[in-house]
C-alpha cells in the first residue's frame, strides 16, 4: 500500500534518508543474539478472547461503498486482476 503513495518533487532526498535509516536499524537488530529467546507473537498475556455467535447490523450498502474509488450496481469496481495466460 505504501508503494502507492506518490512523493512530492523535492522530497525524494528527505525520504531516501529516512528509509535508509530504517534499513540500518533493521541491520542492527539482526546482529542481536536471540538464540535463547523464544519466538514471541504476543506481548499481552491474554488468551481466548471470544465472541458469542450473535449477528449484529453492519454497514448498509451505500456506506460500505462510500470510500470506494469506483462502484457500480452495489459492487466495488476494480481494474481487472486476471492475468493474460
Amino acid at each position: 500500500m505504501l508503494a502507492r503513495l506518490a512523493l512530492e518533487p523535492g522530497d525524494e532526498e528527505f525520504y531516501a534518508e529516512q528509509l535508509s535509516g530504517i534499513l540500518v536499524h533493521i541491520d542492527r537488530l539482526q546482529q542481536l543474539d536471540i538464540d535463547a529467546i523464544p519466538p514471541t507473537a504476543q506481548v499481552v498475556e491474554v488468551a481466548n478472547t471470544l465472541r458469542e455467535d450473535v449477528p449484529r447490523p453492519g454497514l448498509d450498502q451505500a456506506d460500505a461503498l462510500a470510500n470506494a474509488p469506483a462502484a457500480v450496481d452495489g459492487f466495488f469496481r476494480v481494474p481487472s486482476i486476471q492475468e493474460e495466460t
Binding site: R51, D53, P55, G58, Q61, G74, F75
Partner: peptide
C-alpha cells in the same frame, strides 16, 4: 450465524452485493 471475526450475518446466496459487511 455470524462471520469469523466480526458480527456481520452470514448471508444467503442471492443477497444484494455488499449488504453483509
Amino acid at each position: 450465524r455470524s462471520k469469523m471475526f466480526c458480527g456481520c450475518a452470514v448471508g444467503q446466496l442471492g443477497d444484494p452485493p455488499n449488504s453483509n459487511v
